[in-house]
Design a protein around this nucleic acid. Structure first.
Lengths: 345, 345
DNA sequence: ACGTGCATTGACTACGTAGTCATGCGTCGG
DNA sequence: CCGACGCATGACTACGTAGTCAATGCACGT
C-alpha cells in the first residue's frame, strides 16, 4: 500500500513570525543569534518558538547559504575493521563539535570504482568535504573530486585529484620495519610475513616496511602470504607458511589475522613464541588478553582523527595549509608473543 | 584566516536548460526520468548535463518535495562494539539501495539525555526516520520523537514515544538462558555471570535470561558482577569472581569481556574449561580462533539489519505494519571453552 | 531646533527544484 | 473537414531561509 506520503507542512519561521507579531526576518535573526534584536522581542520570539516547536529547516538554510554543513565519510570495510571503525568515531565527534553533520557511505573494499561511486554520491548530497578512511590503491587514475569539496585522507596519501588533499596517518611502513627489526633482534634468521589485501595502501606500506627491514639486515625476504584481514585468512596463511617449513617468526599485517595465525600455529602442535614468534598490527582491545598476549603496533586513532579533522575544519574555514601531510607517531607494544628467545641458530 | 567562504554558484538546471534550449522544467523531467519528454530532447539534455557536469541540488530538492531521503542513525558505543558496528553496515547498504542517505551520530552510552540530544540533532537535519542501534535504558520517560519521523530500534523494544516504533532483534534473553542451560547441562552446580553495563537493555536482557535459567533449574542465582563490555572489564570482573571462590562456570555478556575473563582465569593458574567453563555472547570473528575457542551466541546481524530496514522502508512508503516487533533467531555456538565435563560435584 | 548616527525592524528577493496548469500540436474517429 | 484526445512543453509558483537595503525611531551633540 504505497501512499503518496503527503508530508505535512511543518512549523516555519513565518508561522512563528505571525504568532509573535514580528517579521520572518526577525525570527531568522533570533534563531541565528544575530545582533540588533531588542531583548523583549528576542524573548517573545523564543517563547513562540518553544511553544510551536519550531525547528529550522536545514534544506532551506543549505539552499540559501550554499553551505550544507555536511561532511561525507567513505568508510572502507563492510565489517569490523579496527582502523576505519575507530577513526569514524573520532571524526564524528570532531564534526559534531564544529557544527557539521556526517553522511556515511560504506563500501566494500573493491578498488577505485567503488570509492569513486561513493564520492560521487556524497557530492550529490552537497557535502563540503569528503573523508576517506582508508585509501585503497586506486590503480592509475586518482579519484575525481568535484570542485569546492575538500578532502581528508587517513593513511598513506594521495589517492585523489584534489590539489590540496590533506593526509594524516602513522608511519605504517616505519612501524612495520620496527616490528620486523624487533623480531630479528630476538635472533630469528628470517621473518615471514602475512600481508593484507594488496589493493590496500596500508597493507602495502606494512609489507614494504617488513621488506626493508629484512633487506637492510642482509636477509633475503621470503615470499609473503596474503590474507584478507580476517582471522580465517590469517589461519590459512599461517598454515601455508608452516607447510612451507622453517618458519620461526612472522610479522602479520593486522591483529585479527595474527590471532588466526596463532591458532594455526597451536593447531600444528607448535608453541608461540617458542617455536614461532608472532607480531601483529593495530593493538585491538583483546590483543593484551589473549592466552599469549600479542606483540603489536599501536596507532593512536583518537589523535589521528582529532588532528585530521582539526586540519580539515580549518581548510573549510578557508585556511590554506602549507604542509598537507602529517605523520603521527605509533608505537611497538612488546608482549609475550614475540619475546622468548628462540634457540639460537 | 577565516574567509567569508563565498561559495561559487554551481551548475543548475537553469544553466543546463539555457544551454540545451529547453525550459528548466524539462531538464527536471529528464533528471527525474519522467515521461512525456521526446527522445531527442532527452538525449540533448543528457548530453548537456554530462558536458557541464550538472548535479542536482539535494537541498533544493528536499525543500520543495518535503522529503529529505535521509535516515538518521544513532550509533551507541564510542569504540568498537560488535553489535552496533555490524548493524550499521547492514543499515547503510539497505538505505543506499533504496535511495536513502545516512546521517550518523555516535553517542557515548550515557542514558536518555544523550540519545534524546542525538535524535533532536537528527530531526533538525530533517531525517525521515531514526534508527537506534542499541537502546539503552531510558529510565522513565521515553525518547521524544518529532511528528512524522519513523523509528526503527534494534534490540529490545520500546524506548521511544513513537506509537508505531518498529523493533527488530534477537531473543537475547532466551539465548542467554540457552547458554546458561548449556553450562548447567555440563554438570555445573551453579553458573556465575559477568554482566554488561546495567543501563543497556541488551545487557539487562542477557542477565535476565541467565537468572531465569538458574531459577528454573532450582539454583539460587549468585550476585552477578558488572563489566563495561571491554576485555579489561571482563578481566577485573573475573578476578573478583575468582577471589570470591567456588566459580566453575561463567556466562559472560559479550565476547570481549569473555576474552578478558579467560585471561584472568589463566593468570590465576586455572584452566578453561577444566577449572572454569566460559560462554560469551556475539561470536566476534576471533572467537573461534582463540587458544581455547569460545562458546558463544551468534546473532545474524546482517539479517537483522536487512529485515529491520525492509520494514522501515515500507513504513516510509506509507505501509502500516500490523506487527511492530520482530524476533529473529540466534544460535548457541558450542566450542571448547565450555565442553569438557567438570569433575562432578 | 536641527542634523547626525546608531539601534532596530521589515519588505523584498534569491537560492534550485518540482508541482500545477495551460498551451500547442499532431492524430484519430466520425 | 471537424472535434476530441493525448503527447510534449513551458510559464508560473511554492518551498523556508538568509542577504540586502531602506525605513523608522530615538538619543545625543551643536
Amino acid at each position: 500500500m504505497v501512499e503518496k506520503a503527503a508530508r505535512a507542512r511543518r512549523v516555519s519561521m513565518v508561522d512563528v513570525a505571525r504568532e509573535a507579531g514580528v517579521s520572518q526576518k526577525t525570527v531568522s535573526r533570533v534563531v541565528n543569534d544575530e545582533p540588533y534584536v531588542a531583548v523583549d522581542v528576542r524573548e517573545r520570539v523564543l517563547a513562540v518558538i518553544e511553544r510551536l516547536g519550531f525547528r529550522p529547516n536545514a534544506a532551506a538554510r543549505a539552499l540559501v547559504t550554499r553551505r550544507s554543513h555536511r561532511i561525507g565519510v567513505v568508510a572502507m570495510g563492510g565489517t569490523t575493521l579496527h582502523g576505519p571503525t575507530s577513526v569514524l568515531a573520532g571524526v564524528e565527534a570532531a564534526a559534531r563539535r564544529a557544527g557539521y553533520t556526517l553522511s556515511v557511505i560504506r563500501t566494500e573494499p573493491g578498488g577505485r570504482d567503488e570509492i569513486q561511486a561513493a564520492v560521487d554520491a556524497l557530492a550529490g548530497q552537497g557535502v563540503e568535504a569528503v573523508v576517506i578512511s582508508e585509501p585503497v590503491d586506486v590503480g592509475g587514475a586518482p579519484i575525481d573530486i568535484p570542485e569546492g569539496v575538500e578532502v581528508l585522507t587517513f593513511g598513506m596519501g594521495n589517492a585523489t585529484s584534489h590539489p590540496r588533499e590533506l593526509v594524516v596517518g602513522a608511519d605504517e611502513s616505519g612501524c612495520a620495519r620496527d616490528a620486523t627489526d624487533h623480531l630479528l633482534a630476538q635472533g630469528h634468521a628470517v621473518v615471514d610475513h602475512i600481508a593484507g589485501p594488496s589493493d590496500w595502501l596500508s597493507s602495502r606500506s606494512r609489507t614494504a616496511g617488513w621488506r626493508r627491514a629484512l633487506v637492510d639486515g642482509g636477509v633475503a625476504p621470503p615470499e609473503p602470504v596474503a590474507g584478507d584481514w580476517t582471522p580465517a585468512g590469517g589461519f590459512s596463511a599461517m598454515s601455508a607458511l608452516i607447510d612451507r617449513g622453517g618458519c620461526t617468526a612472522v610479522f602479520v599485517a593486522n591483529d585479527q589475522m595474527a590471532i588466526g595465525a596463532m591458532s594455526a600455529i597451536q593447531r600444528a602442535g607448535l608453541r608461540v613464541p617458542e617455536d614461532v614468534a608472532v607480531v601483529g598490527f593495530d593493538d585491538i582491545d583483546v590483543a593484551a588478553y589473549l592466552a599469549v598476549p600479542l606483540t603489536t603496533v599501536r596507532q593512536d586513532f583518537a589523535e589521528t582523527s582529532r588532528v585530521g579533522m582539526h586540519r580539515l575544519l580549518r581548510a573549510l574555514d578557508g585556511h590554506v595549509h602549507d604542509d598537507l601531510h602529517r605523520t603521527l607517531p605509533a608505537q611497538l607494544v612488546i608482549r609475550a608473543s614475540s619475546t622468548a628467545s628462540p634457540a639460537a641458530g
